[in-house]
Simulated assay, not measured.
Amino acid sequence: MSITIRRDGIHGTQHTLRIRGHRITVDVDDAAGGHDAGPTPHDLYDASLAACKALTVLVYARRKNIPVEDIEVVADRDASEERKGVYRLNTTLHVTGALSEEQRQELLRVAGKCPVHRLMTEVRTEIETRLV
């Protein structure tokens, strides 16, 4: 699967991200010289973790017949030491439903094992960029 991103026009910083049949506007914020017309690349990175945790918890709960009603994951970024090699994401998981404390702890454990969390913390990513 390929993901493409292309600049919208020749002025400004707005781009369109295409993933399968989906289109997402991507930009940088005013402080970085953009118009904040969409999420930044860092926003998308952080959002991928939150989305993965939410979906992983939901799929697991359904498979195990855990009565989850609503799920919300909040990801807060601390990029203050990013240039030093440390990028912190603090996530909170809010789950509603008639859950026991044991089930709540099980869902928290599962959230910590979502594929994107593991990708961000346990896998070495190799990136090759070519000019064509």
Results as ranks from 00 to 15, higher is better:
2 S>C: 10
2 S>M: 13
2 S>Y: 07
3 I>R: 13
3 I>V: 15
4 T>V: 10
4 T>I: 11
5 I>Q: 12
6 R>H: 12
7 R>Y: 02
7 R>V: 07
8 D>R: 14
8 D>N: 15
8 D>K: 15
12 G>S: 09
12 G>D: 05
12 G>H: 05
12 G>Y: 02
12 G>F: 00
12 G>W: 00
13 T>P: 02
16 T>R: 11
17 L>Y: 04
17 L>I: 11
19 I>W: 08
19 I>L: 15
19 I>V: 15
20 R>K: 15
21 G>W: 05
23 R>Y: 06
24 I>M: 14
24 I>G: 08
25 T>D: 07
26 V>M: 05
26 V>S: 01
29 D>M: 00
30 D>H: 02
33 G>I: 03
36 D>K: 01
37 A>N: 01
37 A>F: 00
37 A>P: 01
38 G>I: 02
39 P>Y: 00
39 P>I: 02
40 T>Q: 02
41 P>S: 07
42 H>V: 11
45 Y>C: 12
45 Y>E: 08
46 D>P: 01
46 D>R: 07
47 A>G: 10
47 A>C: 10
48 S>Y: 05
51 A>K: 05
51 A>W: 03
52 C>P: 06
53 K>Y: 05
54 A>C: 09
55 L>F: 08
56 T>S: 06
57 V>Q: 03
58 L>Q: 08
60 Y>T: 08
60 Y>N: 06
60 Y>G: 04
62 R>H: 09
62 R>Y: 04
63 R>A: 13
63 R>W: 06
65 N>H: 14
65 N>C: 07
68 V>M: 04
69 E>H: 10
69 E>P: 02
71 I>P: 01
73 V>F: 04
74 V>S: 14
76 D>G: 12
78 D>I: 08
78 D>Q: 09
78 D>R: 08
79 A>K: 11
80 S>Q: 08
81 E>H: 13
81 E>D: 11
81 E>K: 14
82 E>D: 11
82 E>Y: 07
82 E>H: 10
84 K>G: 00
84 K>E: 06
84 K>V: 01
85 G>H: 06
86 V>I: 13
86 V>S: 09
86 V>F: 06
87 Y>Q: 05
88 R>T: 12
90 N>I: 13
90 N>P: 00
92 T>Y: 02
94 H>V: 10
95 V>D: 01
95 V>S: 01
98 A>H: 12
101 E>V: 09
102 E>G: 10
103 Q>V: 09
103 Q>N: 11
105 Q>G: 13
105 Q>K: 15
106 E>P: 04
106 E>L: 12
108 L>F: 09
110 V>T: 07
110 V>D: 05
111 A>S: 14
111 A>C: 11
111 A>W: 00
112 G>L: 08
114 C>S: 06
116 V>P: 03
117 H>Q: 14
117 H>R: 13
120 M>H: 11
122 E>A: 14
122 E>Y: 06
122 E>V: 10
125 T>A: 13
126 E>D: 15
127 I>P: 04
129 T>L: 15
129 T>D: 07
130 R>D: 07
130 R>Y: 08
